[in-house]
């Protein structure tokens, strides 16, 4: 059981909820890795899997950034501060962290797909010296759908780090790049051999960014992405997220492109 301690309008139709467990001992022992998710219950409505957008370095609370797109998420958007929600988890494998220390990191995110990436980016910036250049490419359909504006500004100001933004459909005030997020890739200058790319966003974006990265010379193992599948149980039983012998809720949602190709299902 958790209390909603803060509700923040993140972008159009997207809110960030800050939650704290009701029981202090659970809050204290609740640990997670970026890329993991929780099953969130809106009481009286139902349960849905939501990726964690806060970072484990931020102790004492949990942030979930949620677009109102289904039954549970729409109901969650009507919840206010001090309301109660149910949480179980964390589930899933999470992003690699220690394994990619010393490397250049390239993040490519689209829309609310940036939610799990934010968790990892903030953890990396907490240990910034452990990583070489960090490039963050982020896009949304329109300026009003860009999430984490304050974070993006802070990351962009950090040494040896860059943030490039783009939108598909600009408004009158937009001065930045126009086009899909892949159109930002030619603008970055990194040594690809020593780079790991993390991609997260809608399936169509992931599909095209994967092709772009392979063309740039990335190896399949250097590309990390997340799979979105219907999930019910979170513990590898209910069968919905099964792909090959893997269950996305147990063996994912984070996979390298190489692993995805071995799973065999179209992505």
């Amino acid at each position: 059981m958790a209390i909603i301690t803060k509700v923040c309008d993140e972008a159009a139709g997207i809110k960030t909820f800050t939650l704290e467990f009701k029981e202090p001992e659970i809050q204290k022992s609740f640990d997670y890795r970026p890329g993991q998710f929780v099953e969130l219950t809106v009481f009286g409505v139902g349960e849905a899997p939501i990726s964690i957008t806060s970072s484990p370095v931020n102790k004492g609370y949990l942030e979930l950034t949620v677009a109102a797109v289904g039954k549970v998420t729409r109901a969650l958007h009507l919840r206010k501060e001090k309301d109660v929600a149910g949480l179980r988890g964390p589930y899933g494998n999470g992003f690699p962290f220690d394994e990619v220390k010393g490397k250049n990191i390239l993040f490519v995110g689209g829309g609310i797909g940036a939610a799990p990436l934010r968790s990892l980016i903030n953890q990396m910036f907490a240990y910034r010296d452990n990583f070489a250049k960090i490039s963050i490419l982020y896009g949304a359909r329109e300026p009003g759908l860009l999430c984490f504006i304050d974070d993006l500004e802070g990351w962009g100001k950090t040494e040896n780090s860059e943030v490039l933004l783009t939108v598909d459909a600009p408004d009158a005030k937009w001065r930045g790049n126009v086009g899909v997020v892949g159109s930002l890739l030619p603008k970055i200058d990194i040594d690809i051999k020593n780079t790991v790319a993390f991609i997260c966003g809608p399936p169509i974006m992931i599909h095209f960014v994967l092709l772009d990265l392979l063309k740039m010379g990335f190896e399949e193992e250097q590309i990390i992405t997340t799979m979105e599948r219907r999930m019910e149980c979170g513990v590898g039983k209910c069968g919905h997220c099964n792909i090959g012998k893997s269950y996305v809720c147990l063996d994912g949602p984070v996979f390298s492109y190489h692993q995805l190709r071995e799973l065999g299902e179209d992505i």
Binding site: G44, V45, G46, E232, C233, K237, C238, G239, H240
Partner: peptide, 9 residues
């Protein structure tokens, strides 16, 4: 063995 979970209020 696949199942769905639903909250019935």
């Amino acid at each position: 063995y696949c199942f769905n979970i639903e909250d019935v209020t």
